[in-house]
Simulated scan of single mutants.
Amino acid sequence: MDITDMAQRIAAGERRALARAITLVESGRDDHRAQATALLAELGVAKQALRIGLSGTPGVGKSTFIESFGLMLTKQGLRVAVLAVDPSSSRSGGSILGDKTRMDLLSRDPNAFIRPSPSQTHLGGVARRTREAVALCEAAGYDVVLIETVGVGQSETVVAQMSDLFLLLLAPAGGDELQGVKRGIMEMADLIVINKADGDLKATATRTQADYAGALRLMRKRPQDPDGFPCAMTVSALEDRGLPEVWERLTALSDWRREAGFWDATRSQQARYWFEDAVKTALLAQLDTQAARTALAALGDAVAAGGQEPAAAAAEFMRQLQRET
Rank of each mutant, 00 (worst) to 15 (best):
H122Q: 15
A210C: 09
A260L: 06
L146F: 06
T206G: 13
D198H: 11
T121V: 14
F166P: 03
S89G: 07
G13V: 06
A133N: 01
A197Y: 07
T4I: 14
S89P: 01
R79Q: 13
R16K: 02
T289C: 03
W256N: 11
T121E: 14
R102T: 10
E138R: 00
V150W: 03
Q154H: 00
L238G: 01
S90R: 09
L73R: 12
A17S: 10
E148G: 11
L296H: 09
N195E: 14
T266L: 12
K196R: 13
W247Q: 09
E316W: 01
Y212R: 08
L105D: 01
D176H: 05
M318W: 05
E177A: 06
F69C: 07
I52M: 01
A311M: 09
R258F: 05
T23S: 15
P116H: 12
A237G: 02
Q286D: 08
A84Q: 05
V85T: 11
R249L: 07
N195P: 04
I96W: 01
P310T: 04
G228V: 10
L24I: 04
P87R: 07
G175N: 08
T101R: 05
L78D: 05
G28Q: 14
Q76N: 07
G141I: 08
D31I: 15
E316C: 04
Q161P: 02
A36N: 06
V235M: 04
A160G: 02
D164P: 02
S88M: 04
V85K: 04
S63Y: 10
I10S: 12
L83C: 07
Q322T: 10
A213Y: 04
C231E: 09
A210L: 13
R249G: 00
M1L: 14
Q209R: 09
G184W: 07
G261K: 08
D104E: 14
A197E: 00
E187L: 06
D99A: 11
T325H: 08
S92Y: 02
L283P: 01
G151Q: 12
D277Y: 10
D190S: 11
K196V: 08
K202R: 13
T251K: 12
V159A: 13
D277S: 12
S27V: 10
A232R: 03
G61E: 02
I192C: 11
A297S: 11
P223N: 02
K75V: 01
A49R: 02
P172M: 13
Q76M: 15
S92F: 02
A314Y: 03
G261S: 10
K196G: 10
E276H: 12
V152A: 15
G70N: 06
M233H: 07
A292M: 00
M233P: 02
L253E: 09
A19P: 04
E26N: 15
A304R: 09
L73S: 07
E316I: 05
D240P: 01
A46N: 03
A271D: 06
V181Y: 00
Q286A: 10
A315V: 10
P87V: 09
S88P: 04
T325R: 14
E245F: 00
I3D: 04
A11V: 01
L136C: 00
G98T: 08
R272T: 14
R241I: 15
C231S: 11
V25W: 00
P58Q: 01
K62I: 13
E67F: 06
M233C: 08
R222S: 08
A11D: 03
T130Q: 05
L78M: 10
V85H: 08
V159W: 03
V193W: 11
T37L: 14
D99L: 08
V145T: 03
P230W: 08
A84Y: 01
